[in-house]
Nucleic acid binder design. Structure first.
Lengths: 159, 159
DNA sequence: GTATATGCAAAATGTTTGCATTTCA
DNA sequence: TGAAATGCAAACATTTTGCATATAC
């Protein structure tokens, strides 16, 4: 596992290589993303976390930064159907998009870190002539533990 | 294949069985959905189509009807990341959610009607104790035909 | 007759944009 | 220095809500 500082440096390099400037606001945003790698934060979530340490930042800047990072494929923009976009870092050791299990009882989104789709992607290519560059796989259902009354974790935070 | 009238009747019955009333607005909305079974229409799309035949209908009614039908599992609410919810009928002969190929050149959303995930759903259950009731599988990429300049179909309509 | 559904307009939500000012390379 | 980035507020798009009226059962 690479350290936060190293990852930050690498991200900055990728940004500057494409002609974008490195700013304190962008660094602060990336730092928040690094510290919440798999939290599926909304833009507002990211904004609030960045604001804690950099109170003068504007929401628009966070949106613009997240858009930029998405463009650079450094973050992944997701949508779980609740009307808000969510963002996660695409770290070096998780090149491929991961899959999700979305619990309809507690709202928790859990990850499956493997890539189960390489085979199906070949099939798509073979049968439909479609070249897959990305994929999204979400399972909707219930965790056994939720069904039995004791939710896995932070049920109340899943607004 | 069941006729439109039969399907409509069945949908109305399901609605009334749960205590909801059958109204002309709801019928008109369902009819539009039946005639555009796999068109991934936004609420606005549905609204405009219903309005053609029932001009006094309000957008809010369409939203409320689509919400109700989603609740009854008669329609499927989707989200392709462009900020608008899209709706399709869940017809009898396609009980399971289908998969999508989303072309990043022309924006076209094409369907894969098979269910490729039964095996993976068992694996989720086995490895994570998660009981899948639904799933969503989207492939993002490009059709060979789009790459070669001639887009598959109605590229300009994919706003 | 009564609870439910509708239409309209207003509000709420999430996101984008214009523009004057600041900052980075 | 000059182009790019920022912060703010206003604009925007989509969806939801309140409420008086109409409708289905």
């Amino acid at each position: 596992m690479i350290s936060v500082e190293e990852q930050l440096k690498s991200m900055k390099q990728q940004m500057m290589a494409k002609g974008y400037k490195s700013t304190v606001q962008r660094e602060a945003t990336m730092r928040v993303l690094l510290e919440h790698e798999r939290d599926h934060m909304s833009a507002e979530d990211v904004y609030m976390r960045v604001k804690e340490r950099f109170p003068e930042i504007g929401l628009a800047t966070v949106y613009r930064t997240l858009e930029l990072l998405t463009e650079l494929h450094l973050v992944e923009k997701m949508n779980f159907g609740d009307g808000v976009a969510r963002f996660d870092l695409r770290s070096k050791d998780h090149e491929h998009m991961h899959h999700h299990m979305i619990c309809s009882i507690c709202g928790e989104v859990e990850e499956i870190k493997d890539d189960w789709l390489t085979e199906l992607e070949q099939r798509v290519k073979r049968e439909y002539g479609f070249n897959v560059s990305d994929h999204r796989l979400d399972f909707i259902g219930t965790f056994s533990s939720c069904k039995h009354g004791d939710c896995r974790r932070h049920c109340e935070t899943a607004s």
